[in-house]
């Protein structure tokens, strides 16, 4: 590399303050986690749940916090999302979700009726997922210090099989399955954001996916690795896995389902649906010879690509017209473009 003097006065690799981008699911968030949190703590894995050996059996343990404006959005609300998010993180390790905790940070002045609706929604979601909310915590902060309420849920789950689902289990040739269409949650939220609003029938995809994972496992699919798509969307999830597994992934854009209205809303705002948030979709890596069987178990899913080889962390995608491009992490949150 040629020797160069860094004459630029603006090396913004490190920001002296936390930005929204540090929570945006992109490169800044990855750096924050790796350089600050992981350096200080003792993370057990680079998956959504830690898998702990407790008295001879395996236990999955995870936590997630939920901040969303508005609290109620087309297709869901913060309460059901707080249950689904943690249930899904457990499911991604292959565990059967068992019990959750729920901690609330409430803003002074929040209508009691709003809180009741959120709690009802959580209870209904927990029943539907077959988990119990068994412990919790409550704090209240002054008016103006929270967007109504924030929720944290933690969860534990147990394993009914011996598979180890993590990026290191991925093999060359594996098929990549996507469980459904993408981009609905992010665009449902965006439709109500001040300054960017639009009208549409787009509803969030917020849903538990534990049942789908159980169906795949029950059907004998030898799953290697699972990841649910949240902030940063499909693209960020696959890049993260590619980096962890040091795997080169080849995707086919035309195999990725996106509803027409989601695509249209993305076109209007200059957003790429690949990076838009989801709350009820996941990708699964599985042996290629089981791909057809997996699709017959989950008919809404599609095979969007393959693991081309190991040793090189790279994600490429073939466009519908035949060219290909590199898929990378965004810096932070995706910002609407001018044109």
């Amino acid at each position: 590399m040629p020797d160069f003097t860094l004459s630029c006065p603006i090396p913004l690799t490190t920001y002296p303050h936390v930005l929204m981008a540090h929570g945006g699911g992109g490169r800044l968030m990855r750096n924050l986690i790796q350089q600050l949190f992981a350096a200080a703590f003792d993370p057990q894995s680079d998956t959504d749940s830690a898998v702990l050996a407790v008295s001879g059996s395996r236990l999955a343990f995870t936590t997630d916090s939920f901040v969303v404006t508005p609290l109620f959005f087309p297709g869901g609300d913060i309460g059901s999302m707080a249950v689904h998010g943690t249930v899904n993180d457990l499911a991604m390790s292959g565990a059967t979700p068992h019990s959750l905790s729920a901690a609330f940070i409430l803003e002074e002045g929040l209508p009691m009726e709003t809180l009741w609706r959120v709690v009802e929604s959580m209870a209904a979601a927990a029943r539907a997922c077959g988990v119990r909310i068994v412990t919790g915590d409550t704090k209240v902060v002054e008016r103006g210090k929270a967007d109504g309420l924030y929720i944290n849920t933690s969860g534990i789950g147990f394993f009914e099989h011996a598979l180890v689902l993590e990026p290191a289990s991925i093999r060359a040739g594996d098929a990549i399955l996507l469980s459904g269409d993408i981009g609905r949650h992010g665009m449902a939220i965006m439709s109500s954001r001040e300054g960017l609003q639009f009208e549409s029938d787009i509803t969030s995809d917020s849903a538990p996916v534990a049942g789908e994972v159980q169906a795949l496992l029950g059907g004998g699919i030898q799953l290697r690795c699972l990841r649910d798509l949240t902030r940063g969307g499909l693209a960020s999830a696959l890049v993260e896995i590619s980096l962890s597994a040091r795997a080169r992934l080849g995707l086919t854009e035309s195999a990725i389902q996106t509803r027409q209205d989601v695509r249209a809303a993305c076109e209007i705002l200059g957003l790429d649906p690949l990076y838009v948030a989801n709350e009820g979709r996941f990708v699964a890596f599985l042996p290629a010879d089981q791909a057809d069987q997996a699709i017959s178990i989950l008919p809404a899913a599609s095979i969007i690509g393959h693991v081309e080889r190991l040793g090189e962390p790279l994600v490429t995608m073939e466009s519908p017209i035949g060219g290909s491009r590199i898929i990378d992490l965004l810096s932070g949150e995706q910002l609407p473009r001018i044109c």
């Binding site: 639009f198 009208e199 549409s200 029938d201 787009i202 027409q260 209205d261 695509r263 249209a264 809303a265 076109e267 209007i268």
Partner: peptide, 11 residues
């Protein structure tokens, strides 16, 4: 005016 972009409506 209300303009529909493939089902998404914007003023």
């Amino acid at each position: 005016a209300r303009v529909s972009f493939g089902g998404v409506i914007k003023e």
